[in-house]
Amino acid sequence: MSGDNIFAALTEEHGGDARWAFGTGFTDALAGVDTDLPDGVDGQDLALYCQMLGDDALVQAQRLTEWVTDAPELEEEMALANIALDLIGQARLLLARAGQADGTGRDEDAYAYWRDPAEFRNVRLAAAPRGDFARAVVTLLVLSSARLAVFARLADSRDPVLAAVAAKAVHELAYHRDYAASWAVRLGDGTDYSRERMRAALADVWPLTGELFACHPVEARLAGQGVAVDPAQVREEVHGVLAQVLAEARLEGPGPFPEPVLAGREGRHGAELAPLVEEMQKVAREHPGATW
C-alpha cells in the first residue's frame, strides 16, 4: 500500500489478487482523499447514507467474527475472518466519510464505539442471530449479493469517496458472494441432513430480505443526484442470482422477496443488536482514550 494513503491504494494493482483486503494498514482513512462535497449535495444526507452502508458492513463483520475458533474447518475460519476484515475496511472508509460530510469531524472509531444501538442504521439481517453454519452461508449469500449489486452501480457515484470505495469493494464482494454460493451448493447438494439445514436457514433468513430493497428518503434524494443507488433497482437482479445458486444447490427456488420495509435504517432493530454492539464496544468503553 502507498504509505498511509488509502485513497491512492484503492486504485493500485495488487498482483491480480481480487481478494486483497483494505481493512488494515492505514491510520487516517481519508488521507489524500478529495473530500469536497459534490455540487448540490447536502452533507447531512451524504453522511447518513455513508453511515447506512458502513453500519451494514461493520455489524455484519462483527457477527462473522463469532465464527473465529468455531467454524467447521480451519480454512473456513480463516475465510470468514478475512471476509470480516474486508467489511471492516469498507466500514472504516464509509464511516470516516460520514464524519467528514456532516461537519462533525468524527472518525470511524467514534461511530463504531460511541453510539448506542438505536443510532445504528444497518439492515436487520446484518445483525441477525448467527445460527448454524448453514444460516451463516445463507445470510452471507443474500447480503453479499445485494451489496455487490449496489456497489457495482455506486462505482459511478458523483461522490469521489463512494466511487473509489465501491470500485475496489466490488472485487471483495464478488469473492464473498462466490464463497457463500459454493458452500450453498455444497450443502444443498450434499447429504439429506445438510440439505435440511439449508432449507431451515432459508426459512429463517428470507423474511428479513425485503428490507434490503426498501428505499430510504435519503437514498432516494441522493440517487436522484447521481450519488447513491436506489436499492429497489437491484431487487430483480439479486433475486435472479439467488435463484440461480439455489437451483444449482438443488434447493427449492426462492419465492418473491417480502414487501420492502424500513426498520434498521430508521434505528428500529431486533433485540439481537444490543448485545452484539456491547461486545464490539466493550474494550473501548472500559478503556476510553487507550491506544495500542
Rank of each mutant, 00 (worst) to 15 (best):
W206R: 03
A118V: 12
M198Y: 07
D107I: 08
V205I: 14
V123G: 02
A112S: 12
A110F: 08
L187F: 11
Y175Q: 12
R177D: 11
V138N: 04
R147D: 06
G190D: 03
P117T: 08
R147A: 10
R121G: 01
R197H: 00
Y113G: 04
R195D: 00
L154P: 01
P160N: 08
D109N: 13
Y175G: 02
D192C: 00
R147W: 00
D107Q: 04
A126S: 15
L162H: 05
A169E: 11
L140R: 07
D116L: 06
Y179N: 01
L173M: 11
E172T: 14
A152R: 15
E196Q: 15
L202A: 10
A155G: 13
R124V: 03
F120C: 08
A203G: 05
H176I: 01
N122T: 09
A174S: 14
A169F: 10
A184D: 03
L154A: 13
A200N: 10
D109Q: 10
A127R: 03
R121H: 07
P129V: 10
L141S: 04
A112T: 14
D107H: 06
A203W: 07
L208F: 00
G188D: 09
R135G: 04
L202T: 10
A164K: 14
Y193M: 09
D189K: 14
G190V: 03
A181P: 05
L125F: 08
G105I: 03
G103T: 12
G103V: 14
A127H: 07
P129R: 06
A164C: 09
L154K: 05
V161N: 05
A155Y: 07
R197A: 08
D109W: 10
V150P: 01
L141Q: 06
Y179V: 07
A201P: 01
A164S: 15
F120R: 03
G188I: 04
W183A: 02
Y113K: 08
D178P: 01
D116K: 02
P207M: 09
L143C: 13
R177G: 03
P207T: 09
D132A: 14
A164P: 04
L125G: 01
R158N: 12
R130A: 15
A118S: 13
A112F: 06
D156Y: 04
H176K: 00
K168D: 13
F120S: 00
Y111M: 10
D109M: 11
D189N: 14
R199T: 15
L208P: 02
Y179I: 02
D132Q: 12
F133I: 05
R177L: 13
F120V: 08
W114Y: 14
R186A: 15
A184T: 14
G188M: 09
Y179D: 01
V170L: 13
V165Q: 07
S145G: 14
A112W: 03
A184F: 04
R121C: 03
A169Y: 03
R124I: 06
L162T: 05
V123N: 01
D107P: 04
V142I: 15
Y113S: 08
P117G: 01
T139E: 05
Y111A: 03
L143H: 05
L173T: 09
R124A: 02
A166S: 15
R158M: 04
D204M: 13
